[in-house]
Simulated scan of single mutants.
Amino acid sequence: MNERLVLNHQTVMDRLVPDKPVLIAGPTASGKSALALRIAAEQGGVIVNADASQVYACWRVLTARPSREEERKNPHALYGHLDAMVRYSAGHWLRDVTSYLSGGARPIIVGGTGLYFAVLTQGLADIPPTPPDIRARGDRLELSEMLAALGDQTRNRIDSANRARVQRAWEVMTATGRGLGAWQEETGPPALTLTAAQPIVFDVDKEVLNARIERRFDLMLAAGALDEARRVLPDYDPTLPAHRAIGAPELIAHLNGQLSLDEARTAAITATRQYAKRQRTWFRSKMRQWSAYVP
């Protein structure tokens, strides 16, 4: 096992260099946003979103976006800035986040989308855009069909349970005739190296995290998550990245009369726990050079 710096809350604050960018990754419901808020409050900086669902305006409660009060207290960026109809990729996010790296307030980049941090610190391959007809074909395919079309090199690089990632890899293969792995081997230099930043990844006990996920979803329901889903319902499209936010399909199923609210709650909590498990696996595999934060 490689040596790794393990931090707690106070040692994080003691070790941070105020002018150096901070990266905070972690599974859903781990408390990473609270750490980002404390850093911003005590040292200054702009909190920049690195979560693929929190970019969409249609979800605040369901994706645990910062509250309006938190946004008033500290500068925030790339939260809720997109319409649900927009298909936003890691490349789009990289383009947007780069503007916060070149002067001004120190960026505190926080989120749970491992791919965002990967393209930021490892670079992004210059892959041609996917033609709309190929994307439409992918939307209609089963996950297993797309996986079967991928080579071993690509399958080993992606989360095979994450439909969005698998579909992206399938689209690249179909549109260009080359696997995602082959494109990634030609990646240019990163926008931000790990040595130029202060990278922190949350390492939370599974049982603790599962309990937090259940409590948080109940708080989401109490805070109006079902009302958010009700507003989305008329335009709901399960092929849109925005509408695949964790918990959204289950609440939509309840509103369509397919599940009771209790069944939707249980299914959403289960889906969130499964997602958190995939996140923890990614972070432990891909972020061995990051300092581990144990709350």
Rank of each mutant, 00 (worst) to 15 (best):
A105I: 00
F217E: 01
M173K: 01
L82A: 08
L141D: 09
T281Y: 06
H76P: 02
M13G: 03
A161E: 14
L261H: 03
I213F: 08
I252S: 00
Q54V: 01
R106C: 03
K286R: 10
H254F: 01
Q289H: 13
D139Y: 13
S160P: 01
R15K: 09
R163V: 14
P21R: 12
R4D: 07
E207K: 15
P249N: 06
V204K: 13
T121D: 02
G26M: 14
A196M: 15
R284S: 15
R178A: 12
I109E: 06
K73F: 08
G138D: 13
G44S: 05
T266W: 03
R284Q: 15
K73M: 08
L23V: 10
I134M: 08
A264Q: 00
S260Y: 01
G80D: 05
R15T: 11
G45M: 10
E263F: 05
D235C: 07
N74H: 11
E214S: 11
A40Y: 02
L180N: 11
Q10N: 07
I127F: 12
K20W: 05
P249G: 01
V294C: 12
H9F: 15
N210I: 02
I269P: 03
A211S: 13
A191T: 01
I213A: 02
L120E: 03
R60F: 04
A175F: 13
D227P: 02
S53I: 03
E250R: 01
R215S: 04
G44D: 02
P238A: 06
G111E: 02
E214K: 13
R265C: 04
M146R: 02
L219C: 12
